[in-house]
């Protein structure tokens, strides 16, 4: 356990020193700061636009950070040969992989927490809202995005055990887009009476077994608070457990592959 945390904390230190990540984070924060000025886009819906834009920026920037942070993580260690120094010590390969992943997740947590804090501050300043519950409600979005990005980082870590970074980048982004797409597509196929049975079954299988990122897009009811969500806590708990289980699957698969790899 000690080895895992040592690797994780080193990874966090590396992540916050990477200028490209800091620049992306800065751009994200700047976008959130200017968000109140975009209310002009929609008459009578300034608050809707404000929330939509801030949550969208937080999610988009977090996804970019998660992918860039993780696709290079293992290949860089191999390329710079620093992995030999680590594995020559009493550290198992699985500990190295899990430590790297946890480091990536902690870095994500730091960066997303910063964006969320700025978002809450801008919302408070723009709305003059002293209602803490309203701001807490808005922060449910980033909380679920964090689970989503942790899952995305696990996908990238899994691929990084056996493919080159560039290929990994496209694979991870592809899986993310399919994962975001698939819930709406699945429902479209299910609702459409003209869909062939075989296609419906294939859609069901893909929807059941591929990582489903759309589950975490909880922003719509947060932006338009007109409908009462029943069992909201159960849903959040369900998708969090789902995310953790899927992350475990990806890490185990990554460990199995990484264990057999010649480095």
């Amino acid at each position: 356990m000690k080895a895992i945390f040592a690797i994780a904390s080193t990874t966090v230190g590396e992540a916050i020193r990477r200028k490209v990540l800091l620049i992306i984070l800065l751009i994200g924060v700047l976008f959130i700061v200017v968000a109140p000025g975009l209310g002009i886009l929609s008459a009578r819906s300034e608050t809707t636009v404000l929330k939509s834009f801030m949550l969208g920026v937080t999610q988009g920037v977090s996804a970019i950070i998660a992918v860039i942070l993780t696709v290079y993580m293992i290949p860089n260690e191999i390329e710079r040969r620093t992995i030999y120094t680590i594995l020559s010590k009493p550290v198992q390969r699985w500990q190295f992989l899990v430590g790297k992943y946890l480091g990536a997740v902690m870095s994500l947590l730091l960066m997303m927490a910063m964006m969320s804090a700025v978002m809450a501050l801008m919302f408070f300043l723009q709305q003059q809202s002293k209602n803490a519950a309203e701001i807490a409600e808005l922060l449910k979005g980033p909380m679920m995005y964090f689970v989503q990005m942790s899952l995305l980082a696990a996908v990238a870590i899994f691929f990084s055990t056996f493919v080159a970074p560039l290929v990994n980048f496209f694979l991870t982004v592809g899986v993310f887009l399919v994962g975001v797409f698939f819930n709406p597509l699945f429902q479209s196929l299910q609702d459409n009476q003209n869909t062939a049975t075989l296609v419906k079954k294939a859609a069901w299988a893909v929807n059941t077994f591929l990582p489903n990122f759309a589950n975490y897009n909880v922003q719509n009811p947060l932006i338009n608070q007109n409908s009462a969500i029943q069992n909201e806590g159960r849903y959040y708990l369900g998708i969090t457990v789902y995310g953790v289980v899927y992350i475990c699957i990806l890490l185990i698969l990554g460990i199995l592959i990484f264990d057999r790899r010649e480095v």
């Binding site: 479209s188 589950n215 009811p221 849903y235 369900g238 457990v241």
Partner: peptide
């Protein structure tokens, strides 16, 4: 798979997918 099918999907379709696909 069990979580996705039994706990998550229906509630997602009801509350979090306003475009109804």
């Amino acid at each position: 798979g069990f979580l996705q099918r039994t706990v998550i999907f229906d509630q997602w379709a009801k509350y979090y997918n306003p475009g109804k696909g």
